[in-house]
């Protein structure tokens, strides 16, 4: 394997992944705005490498209950993509689509979150596909509502095979009229043998 994840800070590779993050997140915001037919502002996504222990802190600590929506990536490159929200952001996101009576992860909320996650991750992956000319698609979503540490162990373990860091793409969407804010985190997790395919398709030689 010619790929060294931990040396990325000083290389062009992190910039490339950051750019993929920016464009993917921009497309995801546009899709969200179309879906709810409201104006959505998006803060510039923050792409960073974090230590394992820092990641759950972003979501209120390892025991804080959060929502993770997970997809497998299939096609020319393989891996997975996960979208994680804390409870408040998850409820705000569903409320944008359709106001609900109780703040709970009931059946409606869970299926709405799966559907929104599907559209966000789908537009992210389609922009990645457009940039790289790789034929890729996402699986049906799997959703889990549980402790942040437990949900984030999934990307941490995948990245852990390469590194002591996790790459995280932080996105904030703000619905302009009601100023409802949704803070979401994407984890793009290529399988080990797909890093070369992904970066090679963007002209980065390892």
């Amino acid at each position: 394997m010619g790929f060294e994840f931990d040396n990325m800070n000083n290389t062009i590779i992190l910039d490339v992944l950051r750019e993929i993050g920016n464009i993917g997140a921009g497309n995801a915001a546009t899709s969200l705005a179309k879906m709810i037919d409201k104006k959505i502002d998006m803060k510039v996504p923050v792409v960073k490498l974090l230590d394992f222990d820092q990641v759950p802190e972003l979501l209120g600590g390892p025991e804080n209950v959060v929502c993770g929506i997970f997809f497998k990536i299939e096609g020319d490159m393989t891996g997975s993509i996960m979208f994680v929200l804390d409870q408040k952001s998850a409820f705000n996101l569903v409320d944008l689509l359709m106001p609900r009576e109780n703040a709970d992860f009931d059946e409606f909320t869970v299926s709405a979150l799966k559907e929104i996650g599907n559209i966000l991750a789908g537009s992210y992956i389609s922009s990645l596909s457009g940039l790289t000319n790789l034929k890729i698609k996402i699986s049906i979503p799997a959703l889990s509502i549980d402790m942040a540490g437990a949900i984030l162990s999934v990307p941490a373990i995948h990245f852990g095979q390469l590194s002591d860091n996790v790459m995280i793409i932080q996105n904030e969407f703000i619905e302009v009229l009601e100023a409802k804010s949704v803070d979401g985190y994407f984890f793009l997790i290529p399988d080990l043998d797909s890093y070369e395919i992904l970066l090679g398709s963007l002209g980065v030689t390892l």
């Binding site: 025991e63 540490g149 941490a156």
Partner: peptide
């Protein structure tokens, strides 16, 4: 000793 939020670990 304690560890918080074990998932697949």
């Amino acid at each position: 000793l304690t560890t918080l939020g074990l998932g697949s670990c």
